[in-house]
Design a binder for these strands. Sequence first.
DNA 1: GAGTTTGAAACT
DNA 2: CAGTTTCAAACTC
Length: 782
Amino acid sequence: METETPNRTKAASSSTPISKFEVTNKFLAAISHSDEKTVVSMCSVEIAIGFLSLILKGTLRDSPVFNYINNLSPIKPVKSIHIAQTLGSLSFASLQSIFTSPHVSSLKESRFHRRHQNLDFSKLRSPSRDAERASANERAEAELSENFGERISVPSTTVDQLSEQNKFAFELSHTLDYECGSPDSRTNKEMCLQRAGQQAELDLGNTQAGPGREWASLAPDTANLLIFSSPNDAEAFQGIIQMSPGLETGLGAAISSSLIRNNIAELQKMQLLFQVAVGGHPEMGDASESIEIKHAQEDPGSHDLETMGSYPCDGLNNEAELHDPFAEMKPLYNFQRGMRRRCLDFELVGSHHHERLPDRSNSSSLSHLEGMIASVNLMLTSVNSKRGGEPSMCILPGIGLHLNSLASAKGCYNVISQDSSISETHSNMPCQELLQQTVISNASDKEADETGNVFVEDNPLALVLPEEPNLNSPRKKRHRDEHSGDVDGCKRCNCKKSKCLKLYCECFAAGVYCMEPCACQDCFNKPIHEDTVLATRKLIESRNPLAFAPKVIRASDSVTENESMKTPASARHKRGCNCKKSSCLKKYCECYQGGVGCSINCRCEGCRNKFGTKDGTVPVAEADCEAEAEEAERREKAGLDVIPLRTEKLKSVLPGTPSGLSGSLLTQTTVPPPKSKPPRSTFLATVGSTYVLNSTQKLGKAEFLLPPLPKFEKPPQSNAENEMPEILRGSSTPNANIKTASPNRKRVSPPHGEFGSSPSLKSGRRLILQSIPSFPSLTPQH
DNA sequence: GAGTTTGAAACT
DNA sequence: CAGTTTCAAACTC
């Protein structure tokens, strides 16, 4: 307890004026003398909290007092263990690959890799792996020795754990220090946090000694997490930040001291929240039969969890974050967010439910909050509901990426499937996409799930359209729903002449089969016509390889949260629009429809896209923009000249770099178009191009970042005519020649050379546009 | 719900 | 590549 230093006074400044140590000693003395009266009389909340902190630190863990307190305290040590178990179920294998980043030094990467390999959680969970574990510890020791020169003479297991934790804290600290300051710091931070989370989990896995240890083991990492997750966090948790990374400083203690004013119930809630955050993953596996939840149910204070979970939303909505009554919990909150994000990132399937929240808006913070809250709530519900069941039973099988949107559409989508040679594409595919494929493949395995919502055909690989599916159908459907009142959200295309085999058809363009809700006529976009559909797709792709590519490119989510808001052009329509009359103010404009600003790729006239005009300007404020647009319309109707809003002014300023872009542009918050569908939703965007550009927009005009994409040297000369479906022959005469550069004589970003010449492309069956990386270089191939 | 407008897609 | 046509969504009434 005396570990309190001036550095931590900020956190603890609100604590009782009485020396906690003094009181605690008194308390302890009373306990040891079985003076229950005294104990009871002293059993104020604050004392209890202080005591708890001691317990959590492990100071009293072995003392007889501990048992007594343990009986008093609702916080049960077992929970921490389950945290470890819960986390252990997470698959780290994909994480490494998914989060490879050019900005992470390979050295650090390798170190993390090694560590994770050594401490593979699946091994830890197996009793028979003790030997491996021991050797892992030995290696860790050796590593530590390298780092610190000499070893501390303490029981080896403990030391190893401590060393590991210290070392990781050290590493993490450095990682954060060095990597979080880069322009892509957010990305790095995410990675750091994720690694931190991993390490914390691993540490937990190694640490089975007791609650105090476990909390303590989290402390260094967690402190860093808290520190770096956001500036506000750092401020709020300055006390924690400045704690030494030593094991004596436990998270529990940190929490206790920083929240000394709160009662035990709140502490419990925090702990629960923390645990949910750490273990808050729908894909937790059996281990996720977590006692946390049980405990939550038993815990008298836990009923507040739900309430607690909802506060941040309100707080944020009111922009009163700093004044939020729960402000003190924010760090944990952010920690949880970090954990959640990690889960989302590499547990797509399991997290799709969460992702749907962000779908509502591109506002990253709110989305995150909502998503996080949802994750907490969902976690509770799902865990509660799945006892004895498959961990992921509550999740639609195979729901991931664009399938998420399908699921979100309440079961109205069939995914056009296509047997593709996955192996062919894998080599060139970003890890995330591999994951996507895995996910989709799983979907195939589980086709005809109990809900029947997502229908994936027998083909080994569902034809996954990177973003378009999400972008179009669900979104438009939502929109239509609003107009048509179609509650189930399943109303789809309305094609009459295209047989739903052209890009006119939203379903077809989205890579999904038409279904009952569609009002199309003579529809061939159905599973029974799979061959036709696939042939047509091929045909179309032969003309325009990017025909089914995501139309909207969004920047990395990781950047979003700091700089992104300053980058109006962070997300762009890939080809740009060609609006003439709508001024890019209506949904005729694909850019506007997608909730993104126009870019230099656009050939629109009089662009007034509220998400950003093609010259890079952005309306000052959404509200203002709307008002202006209306005003402009009024003027137009009144016959007044309308000067395109902030157009053509800054062409010379057009950023060549993201920084330039962000620097010169006004803040843009991509918000769903006024009354209807969200922009090509965050979620959707995330799905399509996660590994490069995450949900919210950020990097500025994506294309700006890219070196000029090579045009097709030789367009895939597909046997277009031969492949042309009989169905379509009567109505159209496909041009066998592929308009490589631009089917529309413009805008199509030429695929990468590898894409154009890819064997997969030449093969009869290929994986088409599984999220074509518009940015060749963002996925480092280590 | 019908009709109009709009711009992408398709075609020449 | 440019112009035209077709198409279906978006929009208006």
